[in-house]
């Protein structure tokens, strides 16, 4: 088991490193695209600034607090996107026959699909999210206790895992309908967009759905409630603020199951 994980991780690293070398051979294009990513996501935040030129608080949260939510969400999505963002093009790969080629290699299909066309330019999004996150931490007037400090990496790790699982599920669905890649966008980019704002702006039913059905609220909302010391609109037990690993684990199990079923389906229908 440990051996297999280690072998897969090293295979992933190997393939990713190869793609990095390829992208560095087109330096100008690489620089432009990274800058582009930075800008795209940057304007995302400018839109929030524009909103705040008209208001002082949004859903009971100040600009710096929303910057914290925004940064957390953007970083988690950014890491997940960097690690396996290309998985969303699975349908296209099936059509082109690339998946068949991967299946004749002695490596896990998942690892190959994730690492394929690994794009370091996605650091653009991470850099931008990181800057906003760092600024909010600097500007927030908080008592940075050890627990709060520890909660920051906790948020980033499990938030990333949740997005990784969502990306995987969105891609696995393409084993059934190859055209549906856009469906996944609603949950990945849509999920990260809605997590950029405080959940207090959404109806209570929506918050419940985002907690118990598509657990995007665990990406950064519950950990941020703890860090920012805000009341929980659902009045869940405080334990919910630490429950991100549970949500991440459940979602990962579901993702693995759907992926396996999808692969089995692909290999039994060839389409």
């Amino acid at each position: 088991m440990v051996d297999r994980v280690a072998a897969n991780v090293s295979a992933y690293a190997l393939l990713a490193w190869m793609w990095i070398r390829v992208s560095l051979s087109y330096r100008t294009s690489f620089a432009l695209l990274t800058a582009g990513q930075f800008l795209i996501t940057g304007l995302d935040f400018v839109a929030i600034l524009v909103m705040f030129s008209n208001v002082d608080v949004l859903g009971g949260f100040s600009l710096t607090e929303i910057a914290f939510l925004y940064g957390g969400s953007a970083l988690c999505l950014g890491f997940a996107d960097l690690l396996l963002g290309n998985i969303e093009r699975l349908g296209q790969r099936i059509r082109l026959g690339t998946v068949d080629q991967m299946l004749v290699r002695p490596l896990s299909l998942f690892v190959q699909v994730c690492a394929d066309e690994f794009a370091l330019r996605r650091l653009g999004r991470i850099t931008q999210g990181g800057l906003v996150f760092a600024w909010s931490i600097y500007a927030l007037d908080l008592d940075w206790t050890a627990a709060r400090v520890a909660m920051v990496p906790y948020l980033l790790v499990f938030g990333t895992v949740i997005f990784l699982a969502i990306f995987t599920i969105g891609a696995a669905v393409q084993f059934w309908t190859a055209e549906s890649s856009e469906l996944a966008n609603a949950f990945t980019y849509g999920g990260s967009t809605l997590a950029q704002f405080p959940m207090t702006i959404y109806p209570v039913e929506a918050i419940k759905a985002l907690t118990f059905i598509v657990p995007i609220a665990f990406v950064n909302w519950y950990p941020s409630l703890f860090i920012l010391d805000k009341p929980d609109p659902l009045h869940l037990p405080t334990a919910a603020q630490f429950a991100a690993p549970v949500a991440a684990a459940l979602l990962t199990v579901a993702a693995a199951g759907i992926w396996r079923t999808g692969v089995r389906r692909y290999r039994s229908t060839g389409s």
Partner: peptide, 27 residues
């Protein structure tokens, strides 16, 4: 036993390359 078998077989798909498009052959 797909992965284990993959070690023992070689495949050439006539019209599609299994090589990496942007890499030199050596790489």
């Amino acid at each position: 036993e797909r992965a284990a078998l993959a070690q023992r077989i070689g495949v050439v798909f006539g019209q599609r390359t299994t090589l990496w498009w942007d890499l030199p052959l050596r790489d």
